[in-house]
Amino acid sequence: MTELHLTNVSFSYPDGTKALENLTLSVTSGERVAIVGQNGAGKTTAVKLMNGLLKPTEGSVLVGDWDTKNHTTAQVSRKVGYVFQNPDDQIFHNDVESEVRFGPKNMGFEPERVNELTDWAMKLCGISEFAEENPYNLPYSVRKFVTIASVLAMDSDIIILDEPTAGQDKIGLQVLGNLLQVLEEKQKSVITITHDMEFVTDYFTRIIVMANRQLVADDNAQKVFYNTEVLEKSMLKPPAVAQMAKLLDFSPGILSKQQLIEAILAQHSL
């Protein structure tokens, strides 16, 4: 299993624009991490550094025992899978199944394993029924699942999802939730960029908050969403449940719907 270590990582574009400053964090295997923050806070830069698409201008990124500086992105992709924000930037086949199959096949896996992984990933993402379809004829939200499946099929230890909830309906959110569960059982690490705070509180305990190209907090959800300083600095809106709990004068720490319901029920039975 693969661990990920970023140590004092900074990144600037060749023209000198700074995109990330002094980021240090580690993700152990099987861990699930959410990265949140405003548009332009540096989230996408951070994850692009994790899979070697960008190489740090300062500091080091270690994937397992590999320094990403010494490996091509293609090599790093065996260990870190990355789902792009915009599915149209990623899809390059005429039908869904070939798209999903491409990664594992390209890795040189045994044909049997390629088949297994392809089927598994398509089923997990709820797109088996679209196997023959041209991805460009599918709605945006389904195309997103095509890209997720095509990365999952590569069976990497670390998986990065960039905005998986954008444009998803309730059913899509349930598919995502289930998928996170399955990946955890397989001891895979999942790093997700998202704006959806309810999705975060439902499925993530560890939260990384970024603002102005820097890390603002790396802590568990309760601490982050009840830390006024962090919320102000990152301009985050706490999830609806936290706001309701506050309005009802409950003590800090309530985040999930279940917790809130239990708290109300407990009070009511007094």
Partner: peptide
């Protein structure tokens, strides 16, 4: 229709079911 409710409505409905 399996469509998302507002979060507060979802909670309220569950509370109702629990007899509140």
């Amino acid at each position: 229709y399996q469509i998302q409710y507002p979060h507060v409505t979802e909670i309220a409905l569950q509370l109702q079911q629990s007899g509140i």
